[in-house]
């Protein structure tokens, strides 16, 4: 059932920019259309491209914000989230904690 919803109306998670819009929505309490515009502006692309794998796959790799397929030696997980928080200018709690643990400025 969750997979049907993902296919029917989901943004595509790390395939595209679904996680980025989700991060924005939950941290800034933005409605979806506003969150999409916010993310698109931060990435320098148009809103329609947020769900275009052909645009987002190379862009995610270039920005180091995690790609769906395994790419050896590139950021994923907490290292990708650190980049995501910087690019989107949002506070991600796990990233804040990670910075505390490794002595990075918060």
């Amino acid at each position: 059932m969750p997979i049907t919803h993902i296919m029917a109306s989901g943004m595509g998670g790390m395939r595209t920019a679904g996680d980025l819009v989700a991060w924005t929505q939950m941290t800034l309490k933005m409605k979806t259309q506003d969150a999409k515009k916010y993310v698109a502006e931060k990435l320098g692309i148009d809103v329609l491209s947020l769900t275009d794998e052909d645009v987002m796959r190379p862009l995610r790799e270039e920005l180091g914000i995690g790609v769906l397929t395994a790419v050896v030696g590139r950021p994923v997980g907490i290292t990708a989230k650190l980049k995501i928080s910087e690019i989107l200018d949002i506070k991600i709690n796990s990233v804040q904690r990670f910075k505390e643990l490794v002595g990075l400025a918060i």
Partner: peptide, 12 residues
């Protein structure tokens, strides 16, 4: 099955 149009997607 049916789906939304491109650009109408929402987060899950």
């Amino acid at each position: 099955t049916v789906s939304v149009d491109p650009g109408e997607e929402v987060i899950v």
